[in-house]
């Protein structure tokens, strides 16, 4: 059954049709890879799904509920979590606090609770800490021992891991990863492949990931969707998509600039 179902989603920015009439779905327990050259609309699609952009047209259903027009915080509550292409952590907060923020929608201490600091609040704080540490612990000894350091002081790959841990702390059903392997060395990529598998198998998340690194896509994806110029050009197993003529052309046509970072797609402040 479909956890996420998009039908005919379009968005335009001024004169640019960033995403056009895209149908997209992710089934429960599935890992979907999204590929496409720079500027294909991958991150824009993520921003639409997670509520950062409101699409001009199209319907979106998540976990049986109509989610069009919902804000990011409401979607997080419903069970959607994401990471960002350019790592965006709360830099002046510690590693642990970053993950603790992830628990926000799952907890409810408000003004009075915080002021009175009664039993319920203390228990909830303990639970938040435990869940946050559990999420950090997913990455073995990479994050947990450094939980009291500032997020900004972490190494790059660990910052990427922390972003995933923070997303995990929101207890999502669907996890959207935006280029999780970017900037990682081969050994770290191997680890990432294994970890993405475990996220599905152990944590039970359904996963959508954008990735430029084809070996990573090949190893983890159950299904691959290819975008170009905001249009879905292919869908199927990795081998089907990789041999698709349109996909090959899309990549070859832009072979020169397959460098990092579709900055234009990123959510900007």
């Amino acid at each position: 059954m479909s956890l996420l179902e998009l039908k005919g989603v379009s968005i335009r920015f001024g004169g640019v049709q960033a995403v056009k009439d895209v149908d997209f779905h992710a089934d429960l327990g599935e890992i979907v890879g999204v590929i496409g050259p720079n500027g294909a609309g991958k991150t824009t699609l993520f921003n639409i799904v997670t509520g950062f952009y409101t699409p001009d047209e199209g319907s979106m259903v998540f976990d049986g509920a109509n989610i069009s027009g919902l804000k990011p915080n409401a979607l997080t509550r419903l069970g959607m979590a994401r990471t960002f292409q350019s790592v965006r952590l709360f830099n002046a907060m510690t590693v642990l606090e970053n993950a603790m923020v992830g628990q926000h929608t799952r907890t409810k201490t408000g003004l009075t609770g915080a002021l009175i600091k009664g039993k319920a609040t203390l228990e909830e704080e303990a639970m938040i800490t435990a869940k946050a540490q559990e999420a950090l612990g997913f990455f073995g000894q990479r994050l947990l021992p450094r939980q009291n350091q500032l997020a900004s002081s972490m190494a790059y790959a660990d910052r990427r891991r922390l972003e995933i841990a923070r997303a995990m702390a929101t207890e999502p059903k669907l996890l959207l990863l935006d280029e999780p392997a970017a900037g990682m060395n081969p050994a770290e990529k191997e680890q990432l492949i294994e970890q993405v598998g475990r996220l599905r198998d152990e944590k039970g998340y359904s996963i959508v990931l954008i990735e430029h690194d084809m070996p990573v896509i090949k190893s983890v994806s159950d299904r691959v969707v290819a975008l170009d110029h905001g249009i879905k050009i292919a869908e199927g197993t990795y081998d089907q998509v990789a041999s698709n003529q349109q996909v090959i052309e899309a990549y070859l046509g832009k072979a020169g600039d397959d460098a990092r970072g579709d900055m234009d797609d990123e959510v900007s402040t």
């Binding site: 997670t50 950062f52 804000k71 990011p72 915080n73 997080t76 509550r77 994401r82 960002f84 965006r88 952590l89 709360f90 830099n91 002046a92 907060m93 606090e97 603790m100 923020v101 992830g102 926000h104 929608t105 907890t107 201490t109 408000g110 003004l111 609770g113 915080a114 002021l115 600091k117 609040t121 909830e124 704080e125 938040i128 923070r166 929101t170 959510v267 402040t269």
Partner: peptide
């Protein structure tokens, strides 16, 4: 009041918002 709020769920939500408003919202902070 200031001390209690600072190290609470509310204080963390504020800190997250101060650091990066978009991401804070993405993490569920209204």
């Amino acid at each position: 009041i200031a001390g209690r709020l600072k190290n609470s769920r509310v204080g963390r939500a504020w800190a997250a918002m101060r650091e990066d408003e978009d991401i804070a919202e993405g993490m569920g902070v209204s």
